[in-house]
Design a protein around this nucleic acid. Structure first.
Lengths: 357, 357
DNA sequence: TCCCTGCGGGAAAGGGCTTTCTCTGCGGTA
DNA sequence: TACCGCAGAGAAAGCCCTTTCCCGCAGGGA
């Protein structure tokens, strides 16, 4: 690989001058030398060694991001928001997938710290795991002590800046909607128990039911992986145990899609026999058939805000931005079967018009 | 940030010894010193500066990857394959999204070169753009001249190692299937004209029709963005121009999903009135309703092979691995309406059993 | 007793770049 | 004419590590 001094030698100047030309330094260089340097760069196909540059400038610019999985639409949307702000500010993003493995998360904090990132953003559910949380906080604190900025998205455990989707309120919305539609036998397809997102959404749901004087027994909840197959499997278990269910809440849209697959395989009509409500409103939700009723979270905005927090001015006190959830009614939810008669006279709810572009 | 010499000082050893302990060097260090160093590391929360390390070891290990968009399922799957091999070999991946912008692609080649990656993988369609292709090849050649390894996935333009999905054969499969089902009025929802993937798939399709003595007139093709909204929009234009279409081939699954949305919005029954065939077989294809008939590409395997090529032994001649496409029959394709009568007696094709987990 | 060997440790030389500091030579002022 | 100031270029000091080379010392063989 050609180095800066190769370029300098070829241009007949000192490395200092070459560096100044290449980086557009404020220090003036005569046009003649400038051209000689640029010519040498082109001839040698010179590209500066990024590591050497990063080492020499003490200036840290990149931002580290740890998510569960960028290819999961939930994180893809968040990442889109992060990118937008980062690109505007000329920051490079280093994105790491933890695949929901706490140890890997810890490793990535170190890795990114080692790469001298200016800030660190952790997105995705926290864990009910004291030991892990303590370890993570120690690492983050150490990082912050050296001037690093940290923000989390959707995690309680960190004491600094945070962007929090209102999972609990979202769960509440889903619960209330189904209650109002007359559902009494509601099953829940939940993500892993150890995730705070699962328990938060579940708590809101329980709260909504409690307000109607009902409760959500543990046998009506099935925990599985937060993905399509987990949803399909949990739904099957739920139906096996309790064939009389008239509604299913899936704690994210991927699971909801799995739930729909299982219902279809069992020839249960949605929403006539069983209603389904998802969570997150990922883009595909409007394209499944029937289109998925779900709780929308402002995912892109969450990313935008987190990045803004971390790149903006430092605040004296930690800032927590809570972003509201919103119920999106589509076609997988309807009145409970025993209520169908009463409501049959009224026109079916119009389908949302977003199916065609 | 604590540095290695801070650690050394605190442990009362030289930086050399500290380095040896931290990196598990083969050179022996007495247990006493080793412990002192490890204690100092823990106390100072020391993390080595990755840039300094990378600079000091001349050894290059990371691999650079340029894709159009990791969150697009097509690339997500490929990336999964890349990751698998890379992780096995302890390589770090640097993944960059070009968002189908040729200039950005060029920039990323430089960026990754600057980051001293050991190899470079470009995935995703090439462009019909001489100037760009030449520039890209120059940059890649310069990189290879300094010992870098390069492989491309699904691109013709590069002369080195390549993994090529058989797009043409895939297009042929889709065309033949529809012909055999009796379709004559076939419309195509195509991606951008400038992408070689679009023209390859289209060429196969035309070839299949030609074998039946038919042709695919340009008015039956609509070019749009390679995503859901592009598919919805192109389908609408296609139907407006030619309401008698009985089949639509979408050149990727995202577009197919958009096509289904438009058909649904226009109350055209799939597959009774219009058949739809997609391309790629992304995971969601089996979960839309009706489940999508599509041409499967071995995406994960493509990633695995590309990474293996690039990390394996260097070959004297460029290797090109062509991976076959396969038709996956699901529920969006059926006999053309005018043929329905003839085939009505036969049992409907069984649905694939993959809907439930 | 002397020399050689080998082990454990440190000194120091990079690795490629940025940036401060220093130097030269010129034009302008007193 | 002597001096000052400044523009433009280079020398050199880092940035933080890794790794080679070298040194001192203890043990073993002659």
């Amino acid at each position: 690989m050609a180095t800066l001094s190769d370029v300098a030698r070829r241009a007949g100047v000192s490395p200092a001058t070459a560096s100044r030309v290449i980086n557009g330094s404020s220090k003036p260089v005569t046009d003649e030398l400038r051209e000689r340097v640029l010519a040498a760069v082109a001839e040698l196909q010179y590209v500066p060694n990024a590591h050497a540059q990063l080492l020499a400038r003490s200036h840290r610019s990149a931002v580290g991001v740890i998510v569960h999985d960028v290819s999961d639409p939930y994180f893809a949307e968040i990442t889109r928001g992060l990118q937008r702000v980062a690109t505007d500010q000329g920051r490079l993003l280093m994105i790491c997938n933890s695949y929901r493995d706490p140890d890997r998360e810890l490793e990535y904090v170190e890795l990114l710290r080692g790469h001298q990132v200016a800030a660190l953003i952790l997105a995705g559910s926290g864990y009910h795991d004291e030991a892990f949380t303590r370890q993570l906080n120690e690492k983050l604190a150490a990082y912050e002590a050296t001037g690093g900025r940290v923000a989390v998205i959707g995690r309680h455990e960190h004491s600094g800046d945070a962007v929090m989707p209102d999972n609990r309120a979202g769960g509440h919305l889903a619960g209330r909607e189904l209650c109002e539609l007359g559902h009494r036998a509601i099953g829940v397809v939940a993500g892993p128990r150890i995730l705070t997102t699962t328990t938060d959404r579940l708590a809101g749901l329980k709260e909504a039911l409690a307000e109607q004087g009902r409760e959500l027994p543990e046998r009506r909840i099935r925990y599985a992986e937060f993905d399509r197959d987990g949803g399909a499997e949990a739904t099957a278990r739920l139906l096996d145990a309790d064939p009389g269910l008239t509604a299913i809440v899936a704690l994210n849209d991927s699971m909801a899609i799995g739930a729909l697959a299982t219902l279809r395989a069992r020839s249960l009509a949605v929403p006539q026999q069983v209603s389904v409500v998802g969570f997150d409103d990922m883009p595909i939700a409007r394209d499944v058939t029937p289109a998925l009723t779900t709780v929308r979270l402002p995912l892109v905005d969450m990313g935008v805000r987190a990045m803004s927090l971390v790149l903006g001015a430092e605040a004296p006190a930690p800032r927590v931005e809570v972003l509201p959830a919103e119920l999106i009614r589509r076609d997988t939810s309807g009145p409970a079967p025993e209520h169908r008669r009463e409501t049959a006279g009224s026109a079916p709810r119009a389908r949302r018009a977003d199916a065609a572009s």
